[in-house]
Design a protein around this nucleic acid. Structure first.
Length: 421
RNA sequence: GCGGGCGUAGCCAAGUGGUUAAGGCAGCGGAUUGUGAUUCCGCCAUUCGGGGGUUCAAGUCCCCUCGCUCGCCCCA
C-alpha cells in the first residue's frame, strides 16, 4: 500500500521545532501590543473574486499560484495566498473604517501553488501588519520601524532594508507607458522572460536577474525621474523619518513589488543568508486597494513577514530556545500507588507545578531512567509502602547519581505539596 | 511551469552486478519484579521511495513515476 504522507510543499512542525515558533509568536504579540496594534483573524478561505480584484489578474499569484476550487454550492473559493486582501475585506464588511483609522496585525498560514525550495512552501506562514486610514509619511516610517524592531528583538543579524517609491497611481501609469515604449524598441535585446513581462507586468523587468537586461536598463528611463514633485517630497519625508530613528536603509530604484495594489513606498528587508528567497519581510503602501474592493477611499500601508524564512535565520542562532522540561517526573508502581500518583500529578499541576507522570508501570529503574532523560529537576517515587503510609520519596535528579545508597528523601504527601505549591 | 543534485530503518549512514543488506544513535525487553550516569546481553529493513525492464544474478545498470533538495520564475 502507498504510504500516506503530507502533500507536497506542506510540512509538519514537530514538537522539537515548535519552541522557536512559539517564541516568535509571543515576541511579535508583545511588540504589537506595545505599539497599540490589534489582532484580526480572517478566514483561510475566501471568494476567489476577492483576490482577483485585490491582487490583480495579471499577477503570477492570481494567474497560476492559487488553490482555487468550486465548493458544493458551485461557488469559486480560494485558499488565501496572502493576508492583505482579507483584512481589507473584513474592515470594509464590518465598517471598521467608519470608526477611525485601524492599526491591525494578523498571523497564519497562506497558500500558493509553487515549486517548493529553500524558504518557499505551498503552505507557509506570515505575520503581517496593516495600517488602514493613514496617509501621513510618518505612518510609513512607523510601520517599517515596527518590523525592523521586531526582527531586531528576535535577534536576527545582518539585515538589509531596501527602499523605493513607486509614486502615485498616475506616476506609475505614466512611467509604465514610457518604459514599455522604450523597451519595445529594444525588444530583441531582452531575455525571453522579460519579453514576456513586457506585456504582462512590465515594471518587474526592472527586477530582472539577467545581466544583459540589467545592462540595457542602465539607459532606460527611471522610475525616480518619473515621480511627480509631490511624490518625491513624500518619499524624502519617509527617508528623513527613518534616518531620524537611526534605521539604516539602501535606496533600490529597481525594487518593484509584485502585487498590483502597491503605490509610493515599497520596501523589503532581506538577508544574504537565505539563498534565493532572500526577502524576510516585504511591504509597502496601497492607497488604492480599499476603494478598489468597494470601500471608501482610504490610504494604507502594510507588510508581511515570512515565518519559515525567519525560522531559517533563527535556527542558526545559538540561543534558539528549547522546550522547558517538567519540574517533577512522577514514578509509581503498584495499584494503590499508581492511583495516588494520578491524583498527586493533578494536585501539583493545579498548584502550578509542571509534572510528567510515568504511565508505563515498568520497573523503577526503567522509570527513573526516563525521569533522568526528561530533564526534570526532581523525581517523586510512590511505591506500595509509601502509598499505604501517605508518603512519597523525593529525589533530586540533577548531577551525578549517588553511589551505593539509593538516595531520596522520604516525606509525607502533604509536605511535598506544601514544598512545591 | 523549466533546469541540476539526491532517495538504504524514526535519525546518521556502509554498501561501486555475486551467498543470509555493516555499524552508530534513538527505541523496546532483560541483567536489577524498589531506585537515574556507566557497563553487559537480546530485539528492532523477507528489503533499499514506488513500478517496470536488462541479467544466470540488481540496493548497485536502464526507463517511467513519486518525493526531497538547489536554482530559474515568482514572492514572504
Amino acid at each position: 500500500m502507498e504510504k500516506l504522507q503530507s502533500l507536497r510543499g506542506m510540512v509538519d512542525l514537530l514538537p522539537e521545532q515548535i519552541g522557536l515558533w512559539q517564541h516568535i509568536e509571543a515576541t511579535s504579540r508583545g511588540h504589537f501590543q506595545r505599539a497599540a496594534i490589534r489582532e484580526i483573524r480572517t478566514p483561510l478561505l475566501e471568494a476567489t473574486e476577492l483576490f482577483a480584484r485585490g491582487i490583480g489578474e495579471a499577477t503570477d499569484v492570481v494567474g497560476k499560484e492559487m488553490y482555487t476550487f468550486l465548493d458544493r454550492g458551485e461557488r469559486s473559493c480560494t485558499l488565501r495566498p496572502e493576508g492583505t486582501a482579507s483584512v481589507v475585506r473584513a474592515a470594509i464588511q464590518h465598517g471598521l473604517l467608519s470608526q477611525g483609522a485601524q492599526r491591525l496585525w494578523y498571523a497564519g498560514p497562506m497558500f500558493r501553488y509553487e515549486r517548493p525550495q529553500a524558504g518557499r512552501l505551498r503552505q507557509f506562514h506570515q505575520i503581517g501588519l496593516e495600517f488602514l486610514g493613514f496617509a501621513d509619511p510618518r505612518s510609513d516610517v512607523e510601520a517599517i520601524a515596527v518590523a525592523w524592531d521586531l526582527l531586531a528583538a528576535l535577534g536576527v543579524q545582518q539585515l538589509r532594508l531596501e527602499l523605493n517609491s513607486l509614486g502615485s497611481a498616475e506616476d506609475r501609469t505614466h512611467y509604465r507607458e514610457a518604459l514599455v515604449a522604450w523597451l519595445s524598441e529594444r525588444r530583441d535585446q531582452l531575455d525571453p522572460d522579460s519579453q514576456d513581462r513586457l506585456t504582462r507586468n512590465p515594471l518587474r523587468i526592472l527586477d530582472s536577474k539577467n545581466e544583459a537586461t540589467q545592462a540595457l536598463l542602465a539607459g532606460a528611463p527611471t522610475l525616480a525621474d518619473a515621480l511627480a514633485p509631490e511624490s518625491r517630497e513624500r518619499f524624502a519625508l519617509v527617508q528623513a523619518g527613518l534616518t531620524a530613528l537611526g534605521i539604516p536603509f539602501q535606496l533600490n530604484p529597481r525594487l518593484v513589488r509584485g502585487l498590483d495594489y502597491y503605490s509610493h513606498t515599497a520596501f523589503e528587508i532581506t538577508s544574504s543568508q537565505l539563498g534565493a528567497q532572500a526577502t524576510v519581510c516585504g511591504g509597502g503602501r496601497y492607497d488604492g486597494l480599499v476603494e478598489q474592493l468597494g470601500g471608501p477611499p482610504t490610504a494604507a500601508i502594510g507588510w508581511a513577514l515570512g515565518l519559515e524564512r525567519l525560522v531559517l535565520l533563527l535556527a542558526q542562532a545559538p540561543e534558539a530556545p528549547i522546550a522547558e522540561p517538567p519540574q517533577i517526573y512522577l514514578v509509581s508502581r503498584g495499584e494503590q500507588a499508581e492511583t495516588q500518583a494520578l491524583l498527586l500529578a493533578r494536585q501539583l499541576r493545579n498548584a502550578g507545578v509542571a509534572v510528567e507522570l510515568d504511565l508505563t508501570a515498568a520497573a523503577f529503574a526503567k522509570q527513573l531512567k526516563r525521569a533522568d532523560r526528561s530533564g526534570a529537576a526532581w523525581a517523586v517515587l510512590i511505591g506500595d509502602s509509601e502509598a499505604e503510609q501517605g508518603q512519597v520519596i523525593l529525589k533530586p535528579l540533577r548531577g551525578e547519581p549517588p553511589a551505593g545508597d539509593n538516595g531520596g528523601e522520604r516525606l509525607p504527601l502533604l509536605e511535598l505539596l506544601a514544598r512545591f505549591a
